[in-house]
């Protein structure tokens, strides 16, 4: 009934029909959720992490449920960039949503291989850089926890991605996320997405072993939402706002109210992650809910809401 209400947003130079994305790793390569919702209704779509070579992923168990959340340690299982181009890009090319390819790797070279392969593909709008991966050349330190490494990888990718948009996805497992955000923006990031999952652990008290084969995994779901809202607001205030850098906010969103909360905190757009596992058509319901919110609160442009939380 609110179909005609305009909730389009501008996101780093892109005009999106609405501010809702599906998050990386929770919506497949392309149209996997298509049986549950009309994918063309999405504002944006982010692929699962793509690496230079195919990856088998971790042994099982790869997930475990926690209170109001879940841990995952999939191990970046994916078909690799070549098969991605061949099998998935044609499907993505038909989608109306702005398509971002999430890129991961263990060396800067690996990231660049993926980005260079895709930089001239008309069918994608940009890249989301997954910097929550261990850097094997630097003794396994996570790229995203060291501002120098973030600068190095962001500027290398920015140079390789041509006219495509570069969005850097921040890990919350750091002392000060604004330091990392600033490093990414100074190196040329056009947008920031936050937050990725929190490194976490569940132990089976009967066997005294971690439940996940990988020992640790990333915590996602409603449990992390208030922290995500806080971090989005922090990065918005301390880094993004003055530089005009849009934030894609995420972390535990499962309702339109959650989405609006992130926007008020400072996100220009939001992504639905874990909730898609439980309700695969969740993103479409959230889009409708945002429209309804705008009608009820007399908001004619979503932009008015971004970062509107009182000081």
């Amino acid at each position: 009934m609110n179909e005609g209400i305009d909730i389009s947003v501008e996101f780093g130079g892109l005009r999106l029909g609405n501010p809702v994305f599906t998050a990386s790793g929770t919506s497949g390569y392309a149209d996997e959720l298509g049986e549950f919702m009309d994918m063309d209704r999405l504002g944006g779509f982010i692929t699962k992490s793509i690496t230079a070579k195919p990856r088998k992923g971790n042994a099982t168990p790869r997930i475990v449920e926690t209170d109001a959340g879940m841990l995952n340690a999939i191990g970046l299982a994916n078909i690799g960039v070549e098969r991605f181009v061949e099998e998935k890009l044609p499907i993505l090319g038909k989608m109306k949503a702005a398509v971002f390819v999430n890129v991961a790797g263990e060396t800067i070279e690996e990231y660049l291989t993926v980005v260079e392969r895709l930089a001239n593909e008309e069918r994608i709008a940009g890249f989301e850089l997954n910097i929550s991966c261990p850097n094997v050349e630097k003794g396994g330190i996570t790229f995203g926890t060291d501002p120098e490494l973030v600068k190095e990888i962001s500027s290398a990718v920015k140079n390789a991605c041509g006219a495509k948009m570069l969005m850097v996805k921040l890990t919350p497992s750091v002392t000060d996320i604004s330091v990392i955000a600033r490093a990414a923006v100074e190196a040329g990031a056009d947008a920031l997405s936050l937050i990725n999952t929190f490194t976490a652990m569940v132990i089976d008290i009967k066997t005294q072993r971690p439940v996940l084969a990988n020992r640790t995994g990333g915590l996602s779901g409603p449990a992390i939402k208030p922290i995500a809202v806080y971090l989005v607001n922090k990065v918005y205030k301390e880094v993004a706002k003055e530089r005009g850098i849009p934030i894609l906010g995420m972390g535990g969103i499962r309702t339109a109210s959650d989405a609006v909360e992130f926007i008020i905190a400072g996100a220009s757009a939001v992504a639905v992650g874990t909730a898609s596992f439980i309700e695969p058509g969740c993103a479409a319901r959230i889009i409708e809910g945002i429209r309804k919110y705008c009608v009820e609160h007399n908001i004619s442009n979503i932009k008015e809401l971004v970062g509107s939380v009182s000081q």
Partner: peptide
């Protein structure tokens, strides 16, 4: 049987070797 989150091929958690 495997631990699975989505059941629809998206989460990649229910791997079988």
């Amino acid at each position: 049987e495997r631990r699975m989150a989505c059941g629809i091929g998206v989460c990649q958690s229910c791997a079988v070797e």
